Simulated assay, not measured.
Amino acid sequence: MPKMMLLYRFVVCFFLFFFITACAQKKDASKAKVMKEEKVLKINGVSLVASGDTLLQQNVMPLKEIGANYATIMPFGFIKSLDHPEIIYNQQRQWFGETTVGVRQYVELLHKNEINIMMKPQIWVWNGEFTGLVEMASEAEWLQLEDSYRNFILDFAKVAEEEKVEIFCIGTELEKFIEHRPEYWRTLIAEVRNVYKGKLTYAANWDEYKRIPFWDALDFIGVDAYFPVSESQTPTIDEVKTGWERWKVELKSVSEKENKKILFAEYGYRSVDFSGKEPWKSDRSMNSVNLEAQSNSLEGLYKALWQEDWFAGGFLWKWFIEHKSVGGLENNQFTPQNKPAQKVVTAFYSQQ
Rank of each mutant, 00 (worst) to 15 (best):
I178K: 01
A204I: 05
E250I: 06
S282C: 13
I170L: 09
E256N: 15
A203N: 08
K257Y: 13
E231N: 15
T242C: 01
E278L: 03
K248N: 15
A157Q: 07
G198W: 09
A203H: 00
A203R: 00
F156V: 06
T172G: 11
A217N: 14
G171S: 05
N194W: 05
K241F: 09
F177D: 00
S230N: 01
R186D: 09
R270M: 11
R284N: 14
V192I: 12
D224N: 12
Y226S: 00
T236G: 12
F214E: 00
L174F: 07
L251D: 02
V240D: 10
A157F: 05
F264Q: 03
V229F: 11
K281T: 10
Y196V: 10
L188Y: 04
E245I: 06
Y184S: 07
I212L: 13
V249E: 14
K257L: 14
A217P: 01
G276F: 04
L218H: 08
D219I: 09
E161L: 11
F177L: 05
S271G: 14
I178H: 05
S232E: 15
A225C: 08
F168Q: 02
W244N: 07
K164T: 14
S282T: 14
K281Q: 14
E266F: 01
E239H: 06
F220K: 06
Y196A: 11
N259P: 03
A157K: 05
I221S: 05
A160T: 10
P235R: 10
C169L: 04
S230E: 07
Y267C: 01
R270T: 10
A190C: 03
W244S: 04
I189P: 02
S253T: 09
K261T: 12
S253P: 01
N259D: 14
T201K: 09
K210N: 10
K252Y: 07
V192E: 03
K197S: 15
